[in-house]
Design a protein around this nucleic acid. Structure first.
Length: 577
RNA sequence: GCGGCUGUAGUCUAGUCUGGUUAGGACUUGGGCCUUCCAAGCCUACGACCCGGGUUCAAAUCCCGGCAGCCGCACCA
């Protein structure tokens, strides 16, 4: 459907409102209204059904404010920081590093703003559009910065993604999973990016909700135990080379995608299928979903393979709603280096292997007195050096020099001896690779509204799947007579007691009530009429078919519940009655 | 961040150019009448000049600034 119609209805009926409206609003922020909040929660809960229940991944919740160090390690402090410059003449804004790179053809990544400013003036680089002078370089950081504590000495940022909370707590998680790969951890929550000029409604938000899973796997074992279950699942794949050739996307089964090397691994393909099934259960039609592989140029340097799940929209074209990446060992390695914590996993071999090894034996009686205070430092370096190198040096030059912080130390054969030793190696420590499906919940919610909405003549219908529709059932007295209203109230209360969100509407005529009910996507309506008072039966009306079935009042709550949970079909009820 | 266009009830809109009485209409919504199945009809009520400043006896209307939206540019690890 059309963006405009959907957004109008979303606004009118309480799904989505732009935030801070009475203060004229702030771009990039949206409120979920009463129905929107339920819908979003139901989508998130369905996600949990897939990943927590289905896959057995546990959920964690970490803070939305993160200290600078953590984001330094993740690369966000440096890479999320764009150096900008403005032309004083035509007022055009540019990325300073891009301009310089083009002008002098050398890499300037990682330079300070002052250095970039100096290069701009020294090299007399001018505005590429009008030749005007450029201003000093300033940083535009896409992270929201804040200060932690009363004295505000510690810099913090609103997290730009939920994933980092999982990587940072990896050691604890590994222990929780008793040290064995593979395992998955998920987090659902808010993330923040201070976009320069967000202008695409709920598609580009400054505060948005992510649902991310981090699946830690053995780098040598990227299969999936349940791949068999999905091997015939057909996906619409749009690989990088096909994009470059400007050809049409491929329709392949999961098995074909793996065998043909289209997707880099079984587990990644499994994740694509899972995402496809998820979108299907949200009522997104097949033909508006495709899986687009990142081009080499757009893929982060550490990623092995990355696929975006894209949904087609009339307004914004194909939009990314899910990113599924093989991030390799980048994050854990980086956090290991910055935090000095060992974030590796011990992988035990099937069979222990015995290796012949040269072992270095320093003669501490001579070593200590000779180097005195420096001895521990030298020992430290020696431990990291391959004994073979040292022995070779001794054979050639009868000495081996090491340099530590400018100081030079000479080691001679009398200080060290070598020994051949047998060592049993039971395994090795490795950084697991990370498979990351990352869902943009707001974009998905928007896509669901967009593609479930339908206009037939004058009738607006939101064809939401029954299990994510905000209101489960509406209860209507056919006409506003006291005894019918009273009976309706009882039925509504019975439905609520069953755990169903049920509403009573007595306003306007019956047709108007059905219309309102359809427009917010309520799958069923129960109508109370004169016959109800005589034989204790009511009708259930199905939103999509507009058909009605008459059932005894006592059966209503359980029947509606089963219909909503998709345990029975409405057409089966029809057949029975 | 830049430029152009725009901003009147929940929605669509008249009025703005050319300043002047109580800002008009339609739909929606609330209440009522009627009504025994899909936005019918009748009565009735609620509801708006984006915000701030300036000019003027007087500003929805003219001017300046801000905010927001749309379009184009730029940005989008």
């Amino acid at each position: 459907m059309k963006n405009e119609d959907v957004m109008n209805i979303a606004k009118k009926r309480g799904f989505l409102w732009s935030s801070f409206e009475i203060y004229s609003g702030v771009a990039g922020f949206f409120d979920y209204g009463p129905l929107g909040a339920i819908l979003k929660n139901k989508i998130m809960n369905k996600w949990r059904e897939f990943y927590l229940v289905g896959e057995g991944y546990y959920e964690i919740e970490s803070p939305t404010i993160m200290p600078q160090e953590a984001l330094k390690a993740s690369g966000h402090v440096d890479h999320f920081n764009d150096p900008m410059t403005e032309c004083k003449e035509c007022l055009e804004v540019f990325r300073a590093d891009h301009i310089i790179k083009e002008a002098i053809e050398s890499e300037v990544e990682g330079l300070e703003n002052q250095e970039l400013t100096n290069i701009l003036s020294n090299q007399q680089i001018r505005c590429p559009r009008c030749g005007g002078h450029l201003t000093h370089v300033w940083s535009y950081n896409l992270m929201f910065q804040t200060l932690i504590g009363a004295k505000g000495k510690k810099t913090g940022y609103m997290r730009p993604e939920t994933a980092q909370g999982i990587f940072i707590t990896f050691k604890r998680l590994l222990r929780f999973y008793r040290g064995k790969l593979p395992f998955g951890v998920v987090q659902l929550g808010k993330a923040y990016r201070n976009e320069i000029s967000p202008r695409q409604g709920v598609i580009r938000l400054r505060e948005f909700t992510q649902a991310e899973a981090e699946i830690f796997v053995d780098p040598g074992e990227k299969s999936h135990p349940r791949f068999k279950e999905i091997e015939n699942h057909v996906l619409t794949l749009y690989p990088a080379d096909i994009q470059e050739k400007e050809e049409k996307p491929l329709r392949l089964t999961a098995q074909e995608a793996v065998k043909g090397g289209v997707v880099s691994s079984e587990i990644l393909t499994y994740q694509l299928c899972l995402a496809d099934k998820f979108m299907g259960e949200l009522g997104i039609p097949r033909d508006v979903i495709r899986f687009r592989q990142h081009l080499k140029t757009e893929m982060a340097h550490y990623a092995i393979d990355c696929w975006d799940v894209e949904i087609h929209t009339d307004r914004y074209g194909w939009i990314e709603v899910i990113g599924i990446a093989d991030r390799a060992d980048f994050d854990l390695k980086s956090h290991s280096e910055y935090s000095k914590e060992d974030l590796r996993v011990f992988l035990e071999y099937d069979q222990p292997t015995i290796v012949e090894k040269l072992v270095l034996k320093p003669d501490m009686k001579k070593f200590g007195p000779l180097f005195k205070g420096d001895a521990p430092r030298i020992m430290n370096v020696l431990k990291k050096t391959d004994p073979e190198t040292i022995r070779n040096a001794f054979e050639k030059e009868n000495s081996y020099n090491i340099e530590i912080e400018g100081e030079n130390y000479q080691l001679t054969p009398d200080l060290l001896s070598f020994e051949e030793a047998e060592e049993t190696v039971r395994g090795e420590k490795i950084y697991p690779h990370v498979i990351e499906p990352s869902y943009g919940i707001d974009r998905i919610t928007y896509s669901v509204l967009l593609h479930c909405f339908q206009q037939d003549d004058d009738r607006n219908i939101l064809h939401l799947p029954t299990d994510i529709a905000p209101v489960g059932v509406n209860v209507f007295p056919l006409v506003n007579k006291d005894d019918l209203i009273l009976a309706s109230e009882h039925i509504r209360d019975d439905l609520r007691a069953e755990g169903i969100i049920a509403e009573l509407d007595t306003s306007g005529t019956i047709g108007r009530r059905y219309a309102r009910s359809d427009e917010i996507g309520t799958p069923f309506a129960v109508t109370i009429d004169h016959q109800t008072l005589e034989d204790k039966t009511v009708t259930i009306r199905e939103r999509d078919s507009q058909k009605q079935v008459r059932l005894p009042v006592v059966k209503i709550p359980s029947t509606i519940n089963q219909l909503l949970m998709k345990k029975i079909e409405f057409s089966k009820l029809e057949a029975r009655s």
